[in-house]
Amino acid sequence: MPFPDELVHDVKVHDYDPTWPAEFAKLAAELQATLGPLALAIEHIGSTSVPGLAAKDCIDITVLVASVDEPLLTERLTAAGYRLRPESWNRAEEANGVAYPKLVFAPPVGARSHNVHVRERSPAARTALLFRDFLRADDVARDGWGGFKQRLAQSVPDLYDYGQIKAPAWTVLMGAAERWAAETNWEAFR
C-alpha cells in the first residue's frame, strides 16, 4: 500500500514516455552508489522498461543480491531515505508454488515515483525479467497489454481494485511469456 505521501486519487496509465530509461539510469546509479557491491545487478523492470508500453508513471527497479537477509541492505537504503514497505506481499513472492523472499522499498519522501524490489536470483526474480523481455520482443502482446491497462484505469480508478482486476490478466499474459521463453531459449540470468 502506498505511504501517505504517495496516495493518488485515481490510477493513471500514460502513453510511453521516452524519458523513462534515462530516469531509471539515474536512479540505478544512485542505488549502485548506495549499495556498492551488495547489488549484484540493477535492472529496469515493469511497464516503464518496455519501449512503447503504456504505464503508470512509476519506475520499477529490481536489485539482485546474494541474500535479502543481509542487514546492510536495509541499513544503507533506509539511511538514503528509502522506506521498507511492510505488507506481506512486499516481503515474499511466489513462483511455481514456492515463496521467495524479497524486500520492496518506497522512494524517499519527495523523490520521483519508483519502487525498488530487492530480490535474490530465483524463479520469482526471473518472472520480473521475463515480463520485460517478452513485451520488448512482442509488439502485439505489448500493445494489447498497454491497451488493457489504459481501459482498466479508465473504468476502475481505485489503485487496489485496479491491481486486483489486473492480476488474473497478468497470469494469462505470463503464460504467453513462458511459451515465448521456451520457443526462444530465453534465459534471465546469463
Results as ranks from 00 to 15, higher is better:
residue 44 H to K: 14
residue 19 T to H: 08
residue 89 W to C: 07
residue 3 F to Q: 09
residue 158 D to H: 15
residue 49 S to A: 05
residue 80 A to K: 10
residue 7 L to S: 10
residue 128 A to W: 05
residue 51 P to Y: 07
residue 55 A to H: 00
residue 22 A to K: 12
residue 140 V to M: 14
residue 116 V to Y: 04
residue 104 V to M: 05
residue 129 L to E: 05
residue 155 S to H: 14
residue 139 D to N: 10
residue 23 E to S: 05
residue 64 L to V: 10
residue 84 L to Y: 02
residue 104 V to G: 14
residue 133 D to A: 01
residue 130 L to M: 14
residue 22 A to L: 03
residue 157 P to G: 00
residue 37 P to Q: 02
residue 1 M to Q: 06
residue 50 V to D: 01
residue 165 I to H: 04
residue 168 P to N: 06
residue 164 Q to W: 05
residue 86 P to T: 00
residue 188 A to V: 01
residue 21 P to D: 15
residue 73 L to D: 01
residue 103 L to S: 05
residue 116 V to A: 15
residue 181 A to M: 08
residue 112 R to M: 13
residue 16 Y to A: 09
residue 3 F to L: 11
residue 91 R to L: 00
residue 57 D to N: 06
residue 150 Q to N: 08
residue 106 A to S: 08
residue 82 Y to C: 00
residue 158 D to L: 07
residue 129 L to V: 02
residue 176 A to V: 10
residue 139 D to F: 08
residue 34 T to P: 05
residue 5 D to F: 09
residue 147 G to M: 01
residue 70 E to Y: 01
residue 30 E to G: 13
residue 116 V to D: 07
residue 110 G to F: 07
residue 58 C to D: 07
residue 109 V to G: 04
residue 124 A to D: 08
residue 181 A to I: 08
residue 82 Y to T: 07
residue 149 K to A: 13
residue 84 L to S: 11
residue 90 N to W: 14
residue 133 D to V: 00
residue 130 L to N: 11
residue 61 I to P: 00
residue 78 T to M: 02
residue 81 G to T: 11
residue 115 N to K: 08
residue 2 P to G: 09
residue 37 P to R: 01
residue 22 A to P: 05
residue 26 K to M: 02
residue 171 T to G: 15
residue 90 N to T: 08
residue 9 H to P: 04
residue 172 V to W: 12
residue 147 G to P: 07
residue 189 F to D: 01
residue 128 A to M: 12
residue 174 M to P: 06
residue 20 W to T: 15
